[in-house]
Design a protein around this nucleic acid. Structure first.
Lengths: 134, 134
DNA sequence: CTAGGTGCAAATAGTTTGCAACTAC
DNA sequence: GTAGTTGCAAACTATTTGCACCTAG
């Protein structure tokens, strides 16, 4: 497999953006080099994922978020109000992963998990408001 | 709000398909009535979600899965090999939801959760095979 | 009757593919 | 030198929007 400049750039971008979409990765790459095509970004991400250097998660609808497998695997907490992404220790899901493995042989990919909900800030901000979501 | 035939059909379709994509819902509706447009399906799903009759989950990349809020809320287990969707009791995540609420004020929406991984069947089928994914 | 709902077609966004030119090895 | 890689443009899929027509209330 050939190590091209583009591939190095894409990998660097994935590492520096911690949850980058293909588009964001492309933009980041473009800061360092001109003319790397979005197509190449997609192809490279697929390749890097294939050889296990990156993984992707679906943090919301829309573009997937890519992250390097270098980082400690972590669980994503996505706030559906403000859209921010928090991380939690993978440890959090360990008991569940254990239970699913034991009870049904299902092997959870912890680094791929996103939990949706509402973060503390947004909960505070909307406290007292129950019904109307405009 | 007007109760139209189309809306009733879309809601019925969401209920009968348990994890339907907009496309599948459209197809299901088309079995019962002619000429309901995919656009209407999208608009109706948005509306039904807004008034709380349905929710959607991202079970994989691609189209979201809609389900009726009638059903018991449940956790989705998505096999990344065969694509099948299993369900688990929401109970499974309760301790985690509790912990996140206590530790960081993050309120997890349990019915929105999908756990990715590999089901027992696929694990068995690929036992002993480590590297090559063609 | 009328405000809200629908269908159509076109716009948009994200992603994939064919193919010719290019380059790391 | 050559097979693998890239860029471009066009295809494709999923979704949204504008607008004229239609219908539930």
């Amino acid at each position: 497999m050939r190590l091209t400049n583009q591939r190095q750039l894409v990998l660097d971008a994935v590492r520096s953006l911690r949850h980058g979409t293909p588009d964001q990765i492309h933009a980041r790459v473009a800061e360092h080099a001109t003319g790397v095509n979005i197509t190449t970004v997609y192809r490279t991400l697929e390749l890097l994922e294939d050889i296990g250097l990156v993984t992707h998660t679906h943090l919301d609808h829309g573009p997937p978020a890519y992250h390097s497998t270098d980082e400690d695997s972590h669980v994503h907490l996505v706030c559906r109000r403000c859209g921010r992404v928090f991380t939690a220790e993978p440890d959090l899901l360990a008991p569940i992963a254990e239970r699913l493995r034991a009870e049904r042989g299902f092997e959870v990919d912890i680094s791929h998990v996103a939990l949706f909900g509402c973060c503390a800030d947004c909960a505070t901000r909307t406290a007292g408001n129950a019904a109307g979501s405009a």
